[in-house]
Amino acid sequence: MTAFDDAVPARPRAPARRPAPRQAAPLPWLKPGVFIGALAPLASIALRASRDELGANPIAQVENELGLTALILLVASLACTPARRLLGWTWPTRVRRELGLFAFFYASLHVFTYLVPDQGLDWGVIVEDVTRRPFITVGFLAFVLLVPLAFTSTAASIRRLGYRRWNRLHQLAYLAAVLAVVHFIWRVKIDVSQPLIYASVLGALLLVRVAVWARQRSARREERRPGASGPATSR
């Protein structure tokens, strides 16, 4: 369904009638630029920590910033394919894996901050939080879903799993993002306007996906109809 960036081997059943796609411009600066930019939230935390500028409750501050950064990067990584579908941009697809891995990186730091500085590895409290506080339960599920995605993000994994299965697996990123947004909504004491912004962006991205999927499905059905002169039945 998606053309993953340089990690994807040639599509197995690509129709041969289309001319070979032109070699895309190399844009050698794109990935390093995104890499450095994505480190900014971490650098900002480090800088403010060294200057004692994280406010009265630095642990909560850092925990929240890391969580929010993870969510933003996760949503950004999910926007890459819709951007190609809607706007014809292919460059975001090239940084999709990078954005997804950075989302996981920040989510891991967020969870680490919760476990170690915040709860002091008090497993009794942690287990109670995960099982009895709904907002932490869904955050935990979101994180659990991100782990296999991060570990199968390599080209070798795509080859091993086969593109279709790999792609199916990686659609879980949507579920993880939905859970992360619910985590955010439930965590807020009263004013959910900020989390709702992320919820609506995510909803819009999901809608694009569903629309594309529905169109492809009906197109496939069209092809399979006996007597239809689609490329698959024309011989």
Binding site: G33, A40, P41, S44
Partner: peptide, 15 residues
């Protein structure tokens, strides 16, 4: 690119 991505993130996070 780094400036655009970095400042975008920082302003969204309010950091």
């Amino acid at each position: 690119t780094a400036v655009v991505v970095g400042s975008g993130l920082l302003s969204l996070v309010g950091a």
